[in-house]
Design a binder for these strands. Structure first.
Lengths: 222, 222
DNA sequence: TGTACATCAGTGAACGCGCGTTCACTGATGTAC
DNA sequence: TGTACATCAGTGAACGCGCGTTCACTGATGTAC
């Protein structure tokens, strides 16, 4: 094999500057690649165009190096999705705990806190969110339903009154929130977070018994 | 230019069999291309992979021929989207009229009919639906909100009682439906249409005053 | 009626590109004796 | 302590592919005289 330029040889920038990991630390590269893929997905906003070559550029490594950690492009994306699902599950759980700690009697408030957490994540990371919950991927969002249904059931035990069974209410809330978020993503200029949260307020109000709070939301033309 | 095989010449199937349009009928090709693109989108389920070469294959024409009708790939896709938006607007309008004709007193039923029409379209044509209402495209779904808000306002005039102002109720219904549909699309095996429609029932029940009908929906793990 | 020419619908072949993936390799770090 | 070898992290260069797009063209259909 000669070191000669032929046909369409790459205009690779090269990998100068990177220090390779120490002996036995090879798997650190895996985390670096996932982080780079996450960054790139954040920039792109879509999983199309999330190429191995792009990830390699982000990570400052050679495209071939990705294959030391992942079988192929699909495996990398699967790993990214799994990683983010865990992150979202954490966010929801924490929001629920924090809400309950703040005011254990504010049933709707605790539910809102969990949905707010989901909304904030989805608005801050549209690309991640769409990769996880959009598209044709067989999304297993069961953990979200379970988490929220658990919260709702706990609220019922604490005296809250729902207009639907807890599990159905959880689905209405999540599906409704998902719909609002999806529409916010579809807008070229993602409207203010506030409008999404107000929509969630209305939804929560509809699910709990009593008058719907929320109030008039001016300007939401979603 | 010689008729010689060099480098990577195409393994094109060719365009044998197609009869070209008559003089002055050149624009018929435009409709053929749009139809072919629609068919292909239906097969693929995603707009990624909707390539000009694929469309040309579907239409039985040469890839270059597309450029006689569309400036580029983006223009073709824009035209496809516009065409489908008109179609959906028609479906909604017709469903509303048919519902009102069937039983002018069934307020919720008329609203349901319109949402059912949207659901049926979205489940039958996931690729089209996602192209129109998913993704990062700046979707102008204003016409849907207007249509449904008009229906709701008319129902209020006819005696129905809503728990939200008509325009807000329209948004809740559409966003909720969109969310449910999006989740159905995300599922590998699109669950039965029935579950989606039942979800819509619940949503409509929440928006109208009085007890939520819908009833228990067994098996919806959306 | 014939014939030269214009106009139209549509095409074949090529272009350059970035992609996923493969493969033989390099050079630093560790281990055995 | 030195030295031969094994193991590790990571790479450069190439492969074949399908893509969007361009361009000079072909051949049928119409029009002018």
């Amino acid at each position: 094999v000669q070191n000669v330029l032929m046909r369409g040889e790459e205009a690779t920038v090269g990998t100068r500057g990177r220090v390779r990991n120490r002996w036995g630390q090879g798997e650190r590269l895996r985390a670096e690649i996932l982080a780079a893929a996450g960054r790139l997905l954040g920039e792109l906003g879509t999983v199309d165009g999330l190429t191995l070559r792009g990830v390699a550029r982000q990570a400052g490594i050679a495209p071939a190096s990705i294959y030391t950690q992942f079988a192929d492009r699909a495996a990398l994306i699967d790993a990214l999705v799994a990683h983010e699902h865990e992150h979202v599950a954490d966010l929801m759980r924490q929001a629920g705990e924090a809400g309950a700690a703040a005011d254990p009697g504010d049933h709707a408030g605790i539910v809102r806190a969990q949905l707010y957490a989901l909304c904030r994540y989805s608005l801050a990371h549209p690309g991640h969110y769409r990769l996880m919950f959009g598209g044709a991927r067989n999304t297993n969002a069961r953990y979200l339903v379970d988490e929220l249904a658990g919260t709702l059931a706990a609220r019922e035990s604490a005296g809250a009154r729902l207009r639907l069974p807890a599990d159905r209410a959880a689905i209405v809330l999540l599906v409704g929130t998902h719909g609002r978020v999806a529409i916010s993503h579809a807008q070229a200029e993602t409207g203010p977070e506030e409008l999404v949260l107000r929509f969630v307020d209305e939804l929560v109000g509809l699910v709990f018994d009593g008058p719907v709070s929320g109030g008039p939301v001016s300007g939401d033309r979603a």
